[in-house]
Design a protein around this nucleic acid. Structure first.
Lengths: 199, 199
DNA sequence: GTCTATAGTTTGATAGAC
DNA sequence: GTCTATCAAACTATAGAC
């Protein structure tokens, strides 16, 4: 009757989904280039040759993971949009980074690291690499505009997204999740200063 | 008599140095994992088998490039330290990012991307991955302290380094160097606001 | 020091039985 | 749909002539 989360997933979840989830985790920890299809197949408990039934080539699996990342950002945005005011929504975004700080301080932001790896390669996959960033920047800009930022809203959005991406990278370089907490507090002060300016 | 910069380097520079410089450029553009020793040997115009006379293994070449990156940051800091006041020194740091914006918007910050790739692997090379970041953060903290930041100096240093790293990544994802200019202006305003607060 | 040739693995991808 | 077996290419690294 004892079941670990992984085993129960391995037994119940369809193989295609398991492959994407294993790839998602391994791409985060090792990067796309260092992760082999044998790694993914093994982690998902799928025979190596069977991977090609679900994905014609490695790039198709990478594209599926990239879509999952973009969807994750869009889901996060949708959850934040249930909050009442733009200041709380932006603070919620920062809090999402704090929530993930232990994993991100080991392997970086899963979205940033993957999108960067795909964009730098400048192959066919780099087309959609900017999608999560476009969503995030556009959403942040709308929040800052509602805070009364006016023509500065796009600069503030870029600054916020950059700070979050940058601290994920820095924390990963040091392996220290407290850096994310520290930067989150700093950003929190900044956001609060914009709000009181507004009221 | 006509000589391109590359060819003249290929003919006059010692092979070991050429290998490190080719590796440095290729690691920036493709990442360590995607770059093969054949790529490096070809770019440096050195026979593949000869690479192993200078570097026992690929990791030794990677370590040499990592040292070069750390040295580059330390040189930059040394150049900035010739300036008269901490505000000008910090603005000079931001300007260094603007100067490199065209290359960084294609392939990211060479320091950040390499240090992150090495740190994430959590192998023997990740030991020194934090060295350039440690130098940068320590130096920035000293500048902010001289600006009268007090106990906030370390938070401000982390924020500045994060913003620079983050915007390099974001600009690379979009392939847009103007994002670096935009964020540099925003940071410039922030630094100026700290200075007038001081005076 | 420099080169060619190649060993020994690993990798993405395919073939074909079940 | 799933599996085993395997190919062809690419990679790190070595051997050995010069």
């Amino acid at each position: 009757m004892r079941k670990t989360a992984r085993r129960s997933m391995a037994e119940t979840t369809p193989k295609k989904k398991r492959l994407v989830e294993s790839a998602s985790r391994l791409f985060h920890r090792q990067g796309v280039e260092k992760t082999t299809l044998a790694n993914v197949a093994d982690d998902a408990q799928v025979a190596l040759g069977n991977v090609y039934y679900y994905f014609k080539a490695k790039d198709d699996l990478v594209a599926a993971v990239a879509d999952k990342r973009a969807g994750g950002i869009e889901d996060l945005i949708a959850r934040l949009d249930t909050r009442h005011d733009p200041h709380e929504r932006l603070q919620g975004l920062v809090q999402a980074w704090v929530d993930d700080r232990f994993l991100d301080a080991l392997y970086g932001c899963p979205v940033g690291s993957l999108c960067f790896e795909l964009a730098r390669a400048r192959g066919p996959l780099s087309e959609n690499a900017a999608r999560p960033f476009k969503a995030l920047l556009g959403w942040c800009e709308a929040q800052f505009r509602q805070l009364g930022a006016g023509d500065d809203a796009d600069c503030q959005a870029l600054h916020l997204v950059s700070a979050l991406q940058g601290v994920s990278l820095t924390a990963a370089v040091f392996g220290d999740p407290e850096l994310i907490e520290k930067e989150a507090k700093f950003i929190g002060h900044w956001l609060r200063s914009l709000q009181v300016h507004e009221v």
